[in-house]
C-alpha cells in the first residue's frame, strides 16, 4: 500500500512559503518563489508476489529528487532508459502518484489537487508526449482534440471554441481546414504540433515535454525545436524537457539535471554540465555523444576508452554500498554533484 506522507490538509499560502526557504529569494521586499518546486520526490512501484499478491519489494523509480524551475526557463532532465526521468514528469502532472515528497506550483502545495479534475494546477501545467501517434485519440477530430481542454475549463460557445482552435492551429503553423481532419491524416511532425497545440490551449505556465522530438526525423525535429523556443519566448513558458538526447538538451536547456537510478547525479547550468562534468556518470554520458567530425575519430575513441576505464575503476567512489547515488553536494555556483 502506498502511503501519502504529504499531508492532505488545506495549506494556506503562508504555510506553503514556509516550506520553500532555500530557493525563494527576497527581491525588493517581495518573496519570489520559483514556478515549480519539487522536494524530495519519491515514486516507488510495489512488486507484488506470492498467492496473496502481497507487496514484496519496491521498484524505486524515483528516489528522492529535488529541483526548481523558474518562470520562462527550460530545465532539462537527462538520463538513460530506466533512470526515472519520465516517471518524474508524470508524477509532476499527476499521471502517477508520488510515494513521498512535495510539489509546489507558484508556491502552492499541489497535493490537495491530486485526483481533482478541474483544478487551477491542471490548467497551469500541461504535457507533450513522446509518441504523437498514441497520445492523440484516433476517433476524434483535431477540433475535438484541441478543444477538449477548453471544454473542461472554459465555458465557450461552439463558435468561440472554434475561433480559439483556429488561433491555436495558427500558432503551431497548421491551416484552419485541418481542424476537421483525423489524426491519421497527418505526418509525425504535424501530429506532434497538434499535441503542442493541445498543450497550449489553456495558456499554461509550464509544459512537461517528455521526449517530444525523439520519434521525429532530423529536419522535422529542427522545426519542432525552433517552434518550441518561439512559443516559449512569446508566451513566457517554462519547460521541463525530458530527453535522452544530449545534443537536443544542449540546444534547448539552460539548466540540466542528470538522472541515474532514480536520483540526480549532477545538476548545473548547461556550461557546467557540458564543459566541466564532475560525476563519473555524467562524464561517461558526455563522452558517448557522437562527434560530428570524422577527423576526431581516433581522439574520441581514446577519450571514451579512458572514461570507460575510469568508470570501472572509480565506480565505488561515486556510489554507496547499496549501489545507490549519494546526496547532492554543492561544488560551485548552482553546480551540484552527488558525492559522498
Amino acid at each position: 500500500m502506498i502511503k501519502f506522507v504529504c499531508s492532505r490538509r488545506k495549506i494556506s499560502r503562508k504555510d506553503a512559503y514556509r516550506g520553500v526557504p532555500e530557493s525563494a529569494q527576497i527581491e525588493k521586499g517581495e518573496v519570489r518563489v520559483p514556478l515549480l518546486e519539487v522536494k524530495d520526490l519519491k515514486v516507488h512501484y510495489p512488486i507484488r508476489g506470492g498467492i496473496l499478491g502481497r507487496t514484496q519489494d519496491y521498484v524505486k523509480a524515483v528516489d528522492g529528487i529535488a529541483f526548481s524551475i523558474e518562470k520562462g526557463e527550460t530545465f532539462g532532465l537527462v538520463g538513460e532508459s530506466g533512470s526515472g526521468k519520465s516517471t518524474t514528469g508524470k508524477a509532476i502532472v499527476g499521471l502517477v502518484r508520488s510515494t513521498q515528497g512535495q510539489i509546489f506550483f507558484e508556491g502552492e502545495d499541489i497535493t490537495k489537487y491530486i485526483g481533482k479534475n478541474r483544478s487551477p494546477y491542471r490548467r497551469g501545467v500541461q504535457m507533450i508526449f513522446q509518441d504523437a501517434y498514441s497520445s492523440l485519440n484516433p476517433k476524434k477530430r483535431v477540433l475535438d482534440i484541441i478543444g477538449e481542454p477548453l471544454r473542461n475549463f472554459e465555458k465557450l460557445t461552439s463558435g468561440e471554441e472554434r475561433k480559439r482552435v483556429d488561433e491555436l492551429l495558427d500558432i503551431v503553423g497548421l491551416s484552419p481546414e485541418t481542424a476537421v481532419k483525423y489524426p491519421y491524416e497527418f505526418s509525425g511532425g504535424q501530429r506532434q504540433r497538434i499535441g503542442i497545440a493541445r498543450a497550449m490551449a489553456l495558456k499554461p505556465k509550464l509544459i512537461i515535454a517528455d521526449e517530444p522530438v525523439s520519434a521525429l526525423d532530423l529536419s522535422v525535429q529542427a522545426q519542432i525545436l525552433n517552434f518550441m523556443k518561439d512559443i516559449q519566448q512569446h508566451f513566457k513558458l517554462a519547460y521541463l524537457f525530458v530527453s535522452h538526447d544530449l545534443g537536443v538538451v544542449k540546444h534547448m536547456c539552460t539548466n540540466i539535471a542528470i538522472m541515474h537510478k532514480g536520483r540526480f547525479v549532477e545538476q548545473g547550468s548547461r556550461e557546467q554540465i557540458y564543459n566541466n562534468p564532475v560525476h563519473i556518470y555524467t562524464k561517461r554520458l558526455i563522452a558517448a555523444i557522437p562527434d560530428m567530425d570524422p577527423v576526431n575519430r581516433r581522439k574520441t575513441e581514446r577519450f571514451r576508452d579512458k572514461v570507460a576505464a575510469d568508470y570501472e575503476q572509480r565506480y565505488r567512489e561515486y556510489y554507496n554500498s547499496e549501489n545507490s547515488v549519494y546526496d547532492l553536494k554543492k561544488i560551485g555556483d548552482s553546480h551540484y554533484v552527488a558525492l559522498p
Binding site: 529536419s219 529542427a222 525552433n226 544542449k250 560530428m292
Partner: peptide, 18 residues
C-alpha cells in the same frame, strides 16, 4: 539541422529547417 553539435551551441541560434 543537427542540434547541439557545435561546442559553442548556446541555444540562441536557430536550427535550420528544411
Amino acid at each position: 539541422s543537427v542540434p547541439g553539435v557545435s561546442p559553442a551551441d548556446s541555444g540562441k541560434e536557430r536550427l535550420h529547417v528544411i
